[in-house]
Simulated assay, not measured.
Amino acid sequence: MGIDETAERVIPFACEQVAAYAMDWRHDAEWTQGIREATLTREADTGGFGVGAEVTRTAYFVGKRIDYVLRVAAYEPPTLLDMVSVAGPMPMHVTYSFAPHARGTLARIRVRGDTANYYRPAAPLMARKVRSSLVKDLRDLERQLSTTPQR
């Protein structure tokens, strides 16, 4: 048993602008629910952020502190950022995708997680909470883009 939740939203900004902001780990705490801190803890083999890089996130989920590490599995700006957990409370896979849309950008976040062990009894509650968080993430992403001076 597991979680497989997706949320999407049309954001009225260019795909490159939305993706550049959302794919930059330094902004994670500004728009991602529960994340208080994100740190690049391993650079990509080519340096900086890219495939193989690892970001450690400190989050709070249902009132509990959770530290987890996501490794970049695919990085194709401005359309795709795919990450898998390599440390944390449960295996998970997070995919951000961005596509041009007539009204701006279709932004989509998908989270898959394995709740087979410790979290199995809470899986339905966790799925609802994840879905709610993803909807809020996309709303907050749009808000951040609306209020952040563009470079």
Rank of each mutant, 00 (worst) to 15 (best):
R42E: 15
R42K: 12
A44H: 04
A44W: 04
D45A: 09
T46S: 12
G47V: 02
G47L: 00
G48E: 06
G48Q: 02
F49S: 03
G50S: 03
V51Y: 04
A53K: 01
A53G: 08
A53N: 03
E54A: 06
E54R: 04
T58G: 06
F61D: 00
F61N: 00
F61H: 03
R65V: 11
R65A: 07
R65P: 01
Y68H: 04
V69P: 02
L70K: 02
V72G: 07
V72S: 12
A73L: 13
Y75M: 09
E76A: 11
P77Q: 13
P78K: 08
T79R: 07
M83P: 00
M83A: 05
P89M: 06
M90C: 07
P91K: 15
M92Q: 11
M92I: 08
M92S: 14
V94N: 10
T95P: 00
T95K: 09
Y96M: 05
Y96V: 00
S97K: 11
S97F: 01
S97Y: 01
P100T: 15
H101I: 11
H101L: 13
A102S: 14
A102T: 14
R103Q: 14
R103Y: 12
G104T: 05
G104D: 07
G104M: 08
A107N: 05
R108C: 07
I109R: 05
R112I: 14
G113E: 07
D114L: 12
A116E: 09
A116G: 10
A116R: 14
Y118V: 13
Y119W: 15
P121M: 10
K129H: 07
R131S: 09
L134W: 04
V135W: 13
D137C: 13
R139H: 15
E142L: 12
E142H: 14
L145I: 12
L145T: 11
